[in-house]
Design a protein around this nucleic acid. Structure first.
Lengths: 190, 190
DNA sequence: ACCGTAGTACTACAACTGGAGTGGTGTCAA
DNA sequence: TTGACACCACTCCAGTTGTAGTACTACGGT
C-alpha cells in the first residue's frame, strides 16, 4: 500500500537530497534514505514505487527549496538601482546557493542522471527554464541596469562559479571568486 | 600481479570514461569496464588496484584527451585579431568540448566524486588549474583583445553553457546558445 | 634449435555484500 | 470496527570482487 503521510514523504525526499549530495547517485538507495531520515528499514519502499519515482520527486523538491524566500525578494526590490547594487545581489544569490551545498550538489547529480531518465529530464527542464525566465522577468521589472542577455550570461557564469566552489574549491581562491563576481557584473551590464 | 601492457591499460581507461558518461559513477564497476572494453571478465581487476585507482587515472586521461590538438592551436594563432575572431574561436572550443560528450560528462561525474575522494580532488584541481592558466597565457600571448578576467569569465560561462547543452538541451535552443556565445564575447571583451 | 622463464590473456569459482520487496503485527484515530 | 500507517523481520536475488589456475607468447641464454 502506498503511504500518504505527506510530512513523512517530504522528510524522506529531503533525506534523499542529502544522500545524493553525500554519496552520489551511486549511494541513493531506499535503505540509505531510510537511514538518513532516521526511519525504520523499508519505509522508503512504502512511499516510492521505485528509484525513478524517488529521483523525480527529489528533482521537484530541490527547486522548491532553492527558491529565494519572500524577505530576500523584497530586499532586492529596495535600495539603489545601479551596478554595485547588482553585484551585491548576485553575490547574495551565489552565497545562498553555495550555502545549500547539498541541494546544489544533488541537483548536479540529478542533471547527470537526467541524461539517462527522460521523466527526470522533463521535470528538471521545466523547473530550470521557469527559473531562468523568472530571473529575467524579475530583473527587467526591477529597474536595475542590464537586459535579458545580461541575466542569462550571469546565470551561466555564476552557476559554474558555484560548481568550482563546491567541487574543487582550490582552483580559485575565495577572494578571487568574489572578485570574479564583481568583474562579471561590471562587464556584463554593458 | 599488476599488468603493464600500456595499450590495454589506456583502452581500459577510455572504456571507463565511456561507462562513467553512460552509466554514471553508479555504474562504474570493473565488470562494466571489462564489458565496454570488450575484454574478458576480470581484466580490469588485474590492471587497477581498486575503484579509487581507476577513477584517478581516468581523471588524468580525460584532460589529456580534452586538450586541443596542434592543428587547432596553430589555427588559433593565425587570422585576424579582433572580437569576431574570438567569438569564432570560442564557438570552436564549445563545439569541440560538446562533441566529446562522454568525456565532458565523465568529467562532471568525476568532479562530484572528487567531493568524496581527496586523491581524485588533488588530481583534478591540478589539471584544471593548469588548463585555466594555459588558456590565460595563450590568450594574452595571442594578441587578441581581452585580459585575464575576460578569459576566466568566458571559461565560467562557456562551461555552464556546455553543461546545459549536454544535460538539459531543451532549456536553451541551439540557436540561442550560439547567440549567447557571441553575446558573451562581445560583453566580456570590454 | 631448444629450453626456461616472465609476463600476460583468459576462465572459472567461491564468497560476499547489499538491496528489494513483501507480509505480518501492533497501534492509533475516526 | 475499520482503515491507514509504523515498525520489523525474513527471503530472494543480482551484482561484484578478488584470486587461483591454466594456456599462450616472446624472448634471452646456451
Amino acid at each position: 500500500m502506498v503511504r500518504q503521510n505527506t510530512a513523512r514523504r517530504t522528510a524522506l525526499i529531503d533525506a534523499a537530497i542529502e544522500v545524493l549530495a553525500a554519496e552520489g547517485a551511486r549511494g541513493l538507495t531506499f535503505r540509505a534514505v531510510d537511514a538518513q531520515a532516521g526511519v525504520p528499514t523499508g519505509t522508503a519502499s512504502n512511499y516510492f514505487a521505485n528509484r525513478d519515482d524517488l529521483l523525480t520527486q527529489a528533482g521537484g523538491r530541490i527547486y522548491e527549496r532553492l527558491q529565494p524566500d519572500a524577505a530576500e525578494v523584497a530586499d532586492s526590490r529596495s535600495g539603489a538601482r545601479d551596478g554595485d547594487r547588482v553585484a551585491v545581489l548576485i553575490q547574495g544569490v551565489v552565497d545562498r546557493v553555495s550555502s545549500f551545498k547539498s541541494g546544489y550538489l544533488a541537483l548536479l547529480e540529478l542533471r547527470l542522471e537526467a541524461t539517462r531518465r527522460p521523466a527526470l529530464r522533463t521535470v528538471l527542464t521545466k523547473h530550470i527554464r521557469a527559473d531562468v525566465d523568472a530571473n529575467i522577468r524579475h530583473h527587467l521589472a526591477s529597474g536595475l541596469p542590464g537586459d535579458e542577455d545580461t541575466v542569462v550570461l550571469l546565470y551561466l557564469a555564476m552557476n559554474w562559479l558555484v560548481v568550482e566552489r563546491l567541487t574543487l574549491p582550490d582552483v580559485f581562491g575565495e577572494d578571487e571568486m568574489r572578485r570574479l563576481v564583481t568583474s562579471a557584473v561590471e562587464r556584463l551590464l554593458a
